[in-house]
Each structure stands twice: as C-alpha cells, then as structure tokens.
Design a protein around this nucleic acid. Structure first.
Ligand SMILES: [Zn+2]
Ligand SMILES: [Zn+2]
Ligand SMILES: [Zn+2]
Ligand SMILES: [Zn+2]
Lengths: 138, 138
DNA sequence: TCTACAACCTCTAGTCACTAGAGCTTCAAG
DNA sequence: CTTGAAGCTCTAGTGACTAGAGGTTGTAGA
C-alpha cells in the first residue's frame, strides 16, 4: 500500500493533482487509514501511470475517463479507443498547422526590427496593427 | 461613434469579449450615452483591431497591454516590443517541438490498432499504459 | 407619439486542468 | 512520548473568455 506522497514520487504527478484526479472521478484510492489518509494499491499506481502518460500526450480528462472505462472491460470492443486516439491526432495536427503559420509570421515580425528605433516607426508594432503586413492567413 | 455591436461586427470580436477587454483594462470606450451604453471612436476601433490581430498571433493579454502602452508613446524606444515578439516566437517554437513529438507518437498509436479487436489486446490502450512503447520523449 | 423588440447593461458563474494557501490532523521515526 | 513531515479539507486563483439571468435603452415603423 502506498501513501499519496509515495504515489506522487513514483509517477511524477504532484500530490494536489492526484487529489484533483480523485475529485473528478479519474482515480479513486483503494481505501483510507483510520486517520482518513488515502492508501493506494498497485492497481492505483498503474492507473495513475496511465493517466500521466495520456495527459503527457495531450488527451483530455474526459477522454482519459473513457479510455480507463474501456480498459476496465477487457471484453468490450476497442473501437472507441482508436476513435479517441485519432481525434487526438487530428487535434494535434490542427494545432501544428496553426502554430506553423504563426511561426512564419512571427519570424518576419521579430526579425523586422532590431529594437534600436522608437516605437513610432517600429515594424513590430506596425505589423501587429495591420494584418495586411502578413504573408498569409493565421 | 460606434456602438459595441458595430465594433464587434467590424472586428469580428464578440461583444462579451469586448466588455471583457474593458474589464481587464485593455480597451476603454470613448464614453457612454445618457442611457449608459458604450460608444467608441475611430481610435477605439483601431485599438481593438490591434488587439484582435495580436491575440490571433498568440500574444497574451499582458503582452498586448505592454505593446499598446508602448504604441501610445511614439517617442519611446521599441526595444520592449521586439523582446516581446521574440519571446512569443520562442514560445511558439517550443510548442511546435512538443506537438511534433506528440504527433509522431500519436500516429504510431492511432495506426497501431484498427479498432476491430477488444480492449484487452488493444495497442492504443497498451501504448498509453506504458511509455516504453514510445519511440522518443514527449 | 407610441410601441415593439433588438441590442444594450451588470453581475454571477462556468470552462479546463490544475495550483496555492490557510488551518487543522495524523503518521512514523527517534 | 515528542516532534515535524506529510496528510487532510476547503476555498480561491489562473487565462481568456463564454453563458445566462434579469433588467434597461435605442431606434425604426405604424
Ligand atoms: Zn521596433
Ligand atoms: Zn496577420
Ligand atoms: Zn484497439
Ligand atoms: Zn510515451
């Protein structure tokens, strides 16, 4: 049995975050001591590892809840899991596209001024004031 | 003079968002009617356009506040503006790196299962349970 | 001039995934 | 048995909005 602090050390998830996961129904402790402290078993440790990894990959709490639910039922079809993963991939790709466009404009903007002049003639400020300066959409 | 709704239409910024910008000190109306409705002048329209564009480029409210402050003082050095822009670029590049790593892992994960099996042997679930499956860090 | 109603107002609360802090209690080592 | 690290609950704050309730104002047509 592990205390919440031991679980935290082993997974790298902060103690208040573990309590937060309990609050939103993602991870319930195996039980409590007489003095009301949480105790976890190996299953809890693994579940928290799963949560941690999925969060690192950008999955939402809601998605992780569904994935864990699926994991608890080994006989169910895994179709939902693949759909969730594909959705997450789509999401990441959309963000990538957006960020790439931003990067291109920001390079132009940041490189357009050396910071030696005054704000009246600053290319950074002029670029922000008018999207016409931009090469593309973003 | 424009009403808040006209400003909204011309900039594409939603009415409640404009009020929110006022609340955080980014955009103050030129005045109010007798009946307490906001009225904006051309300067307000331009300022909101600036805010909109900077937000689209990912600048924080705090950064935009500093940029507008600088813009109001044409005689001041624009060094801070370039620093803010460079910081934003760095930020975007960090996010890009992270997302590229995520994309690589998610492609592997999402392609690893066709969703036809059951959750017990699902590659998606197995990959999420154990970072060892991952090709790299993320 | 009256009336209808779209647009405006303020205020509170909710979103997401935590994070910080106050004030208290429990566990475990010495 | 004492001490102090670690635990507990509860509330509130983060960023940048968004939604809704419940009331008021502006304006166009009759
Ligand atoms: Zn400059
Ligand atoms: Zn632009
Ligand atoms: Zn599968
Ligand atoms: Zn991994």
């Amino acid at each position: 049995m592990f205390s919440i602090g031991q679980l935290s050390k082993q997974t790298g998830v902060k103690v208040p975050t573990i309590r937060y996961y309990e609050q939103v129904g993602l991870l319930v402790s195996a039980g409590r001591t007489e003095g009301n402290q949480r105790r976890y078993d190996k299953g809890g440790l693994e579940r928290l590892g799963f949560i941690r990894h999925a969060r690192d990959l950008g999955f939402s709490i809601e998605a992780i809840t569904a994935l864990i639910d699926l994991q608890q039922h080994p006989d169910r079809s895994c179709q939902e899991a693949t759909l969730i993963a594909q959705h997450q991939l789509t999401d990441v790709r959309e963000k990538l596209l957006r960020l790439k466009a931003l990067e291109a404009e920001l390079v132009r903007i940041a490189d357009g001024c050396d910071g030696e002049g005054n704000s009246e003639e600053c290319y950074v400020l002029a670029s922000l004031a008018d999207h016409q300066h931009c090469r593309g959409e973003h």
